[in-house]
């Protein structure tokens, strides 16, 4: 099997009638990758700040997410408590406290009991912070990392996401650019282990085309937008 690589590449070059392995094409391929030029970006997300945030909210609600706005990180615990109470959910949640994102004063909301760490499937509610939102489709962009374990996004039936208003972009391309700008390491890499685009709560229509929420991932997705400076 050791030769599979060579044989496959050889078969490709034969099929493409281009037996020379390295030539001008390879250079232009490298250049195309390095340029990573955006293709056509739909006009939909190209809006001023207010309209962009409104579009994000509309699109997210369209796919059965719920959205609330608070004026500062300090307002998040109260909003979370309100949401849990309204949905008859336990006042207990899991999240990561040490974060490069917004510092949320959970301890000020004494009704809530807050556990720290990744999720293991026993939690009813998890709270995580989004890297960004995309107005075009009401999508959240989550990065894996020490302060944002992926499991928080998928294991609990209720997932609450904190999103800074300044992090709501018009389209996905802005997010890739931002990722390259902010996250590129010395080794020249910028992708975290996992980037999750999340658009609404989990769903399945595999049984008779009946749409059901909460298939494997969360049944509820609640987005708390934090206004004011990030």
């Amino acid at each position: 099997m050791s030769n599979a690589r060579g044989e496959i590449l050889g078969a490709i070059r034969t099929a493409l009638k281009r037996p020379e392995a390295y030539g001008a094409e390879n250079i232009s391929v490298q250049q195309r990758i390095q340029a990573h030029r955006a293709n056509l970006i739909p006009a939909r997300g190209r809006l001023g700040t207010k309209a962009r945030v409104d579009l994000f909210i509309r699109e997210a609600e369209q796919v059965q997410a719920t959205v609330a706005r608070v004026s500062a990180p300090a307002g998040v615990p109260r909003e979370v408590a309100r949401f849990l109470a309204k949905n008859n959910l336990p006042m207990r949640l899991k999240t990561v406290l040490e974060t490069s994102g917004k510092v949320i004063p959970w301890s000020e909301q004494t009704l809530l009991s807050v556990e720290e760490g990744r999720a293991d499937g026993s939690e009813e509610v998890c709270v995580s912070q989004a890297f960004a939102g995309v107005a075009e489709s009401g999508t959240l962009v989550m990065l894996s990392g020490a302060d944002s374990p992926t499991t928080l996004n998928f294991l609990p039936p209720t997932h609450i996401v904190v999103l800074g208003v300044a992090d709501i972009a018009g389209d996905y391309e802005e997010i890739w650019d931002r990722l390259r700008r902010e996250k590129t390491t010395e080794a020249g890499r910028f992708m975290p282990r996992t980037v999750n685009w999340i658009t609404g709560p989990s769903r399945s229509a595999d049984i008779e085309q009946t749409l059901l929420l909460g298939a494997h991932g969360p049944l509820r997705l609640h987005i708390v937008i934090v206004d004011g400076d990030a």
């Binding site: 990561v96 894996s144 992708m191």
Partner: peptide, 21 residues
């Protein structure tokens, strides 16, 4: 759908400091 619910980009194994993966 405008977008599927979950679009996931996986790059290599778990990084130092990651709590899961």
């Amino acid at each position: 759908q405008e977008m599927s619910v979950y679009n996931t980009f996986c790059t290599g194994p778990k990084r130092p400091g990651d709590l899961d993966g």
